[in-house]
Simulated assay, not measured.
Amino acid sequence: MTEQLLPENVQTWAQAPLPTAPPEPTPAGRLTIASVPAGHPYVRGISGADDGVVRLRDPLPDPADPDRWWPPVVLDAAWITQNADVVDVVHVHFGAESLPPGRLAGALDALDAAGLPLVYTAHDLTNPQLADQAPHEADLDLLISRASAVITLTDGAADEIARRWDRTAVVIPHPAIVAEGATPPPGRATGAFTVGVHLRDIRPGIDAVGSVRTLLAGLTDLRAAGVAAAGRVVVNDRVRDSDALDAVAALLTDRPDCVLVRRPRVADPELEQEVADLDVALLPYRHGTHSGWVELCHDLGVPVVGPRVGYAHEQHPDEFTAFEPDDGVSLARAVLAALARGTRPGSGERAALVQRRALARVVQHRAIVRAHTDVYRTVVRRTGASA
C-alpha cells in the first residue's frame, strides 16, 4: 500500500519545464486517458489489459527524479494545449493540493477550450494530507463543479456530493490493494490476540496520540475481562509530527502489553506481512473520507475497528466495527466483536478467507474496469471528443 509524502516546496518544482515529446498515437478505437497520477496503485487497480483504454505515463516535473509525479504536469494549461489532439479524457484522482495557486483553474479552462472532458474521482472530501482544509475545499469546488463526470467510492460520499455540489456521482468501489495473482502472507500466530495500529508518517489525518491512548485503555479493559490481548503500534522512522511521536512513546512507557515498532517505510510485501500478523487492525483517523487501509485489511482477512470518520465504514461494513474515540470501553467492545467474527493469523480459516476474497476480487476487478470504461465513453460521446 503506497504512501505519498507531499513536498513542502511545490512552488519551485512547479516551474520545471514541460515535456516536449507528445505521447505516441493511440490504436484506432481505443481511448487515450491522461490519469493524474497514472503511476498510482489505484489507477493500476482500475485498469485492465482489454479495457479499450490506453493510459499515458505520468510526465515528470523533474526528469532527474523519476519517482516523483507531483505537482502533476498534466494539470497545466500548456501541457493540455500541446497534447489536446492525442488525449480523449483527463481523469484526476490525486495531486491538486500540490499545485501552485491558480494553476488548477487554468488547467480546467484549457480543458474547456480544447473540448476535452474531465473525469474526477472524489477520493477525499476531507484531505488526510492537510490540516487546513480550505485549499482542498476550493479545489473540490472547481473539480466537482466543472467535471464532465464525478466518481466516488461509497454511497455516503455520493450523498454528500449531491448535498454540497448538486452533482450525481457514479459510485465505483475501491479496487483491491493486494495485487491480483499475488500470494498474500498468511500471518503468524501468537498466543495473545494482537490489536495493531499503523501510524505511518503521522500525517495530519492521523490522530496518533488519541488512538494510542484509546488502545491502551481498551487493552486494560480487555485484560480486566480476562481477554489476553496485546497491542502493537507501528510508525515510520520519518514522521511529519515528531511531537506526537514523542507523546506516543511516553504513553507506552511501562506498558509491556503494547510494543512500539519504529522502522523505515517498508515495501508492500513487508507491510502486508505486518498487517497479516494482526488479529484486529485499529484505524487511527482524525479526519478523512475513504481508506485504502480498510481495503488492505479486507484483502488480508483482518477485521477493522475504527472511529466513524468519513465513509470508511461503508467500504466493507460487515468487517468494520466502530468505537468512540477516547473511550477504552467502547474500543474493548469493538475488539471483542471483531474477534468474534474474525480469524486468527496463520490459521487455516484465515488462509481460506483470504483465498475466497482474492477470487471475489478478480470478479470485482472486471466490473470496476468496465464501469470506468463506460464513464469514459459516456463523457466522450457527450462532449463530441474522439480518439
Rank of each mutant, 00 (worst) to 15 (best):
C258F: 08
V261R: 10
V261A: 05
E270I: 07
E270Y: 01
E272I: 06
A276C: 08
D279F: 04
D279N: 14
D279W: 07
A281D: 04
P284E: 12
R286G: 15
R286K: 06
H287R: 09
H287Y: 05
G288C: 09
G292D: 06
W293K: 04
H298E: 07
H298T: 12
L300Y: 11
V302P: 00
V304S: 00
V305T: 15
P307M: 10
R308F: 10
A312S: 15
A312R: 10
H313C: 07
E314L: 10
P317W: 02
P317G: 15
A322S: 15
D326F: 02
V329N: 04
A332V: 06
R333E: 14
V335S: 06
L336G: 01
A337G: 06
A338N: 10
G342I: 00
T343Q: 00
E349T: 14
R350E: 08
A351E: 12
A351M: 11
A351Q: 11
L353V: 12
V354C: 02
R356N: 09
A358D: 08
A358M: 11
L359D: 14
A360Q: 12
R361E: 14
V362G: 08
A367D: 10
I368G: 06
R370V: 07
R370L: 08
A371C: 10
A371W: 09
H372F: 11
D374S: 11
V375G: 09
V375T: 06
Y376W: 05
T378P: 03
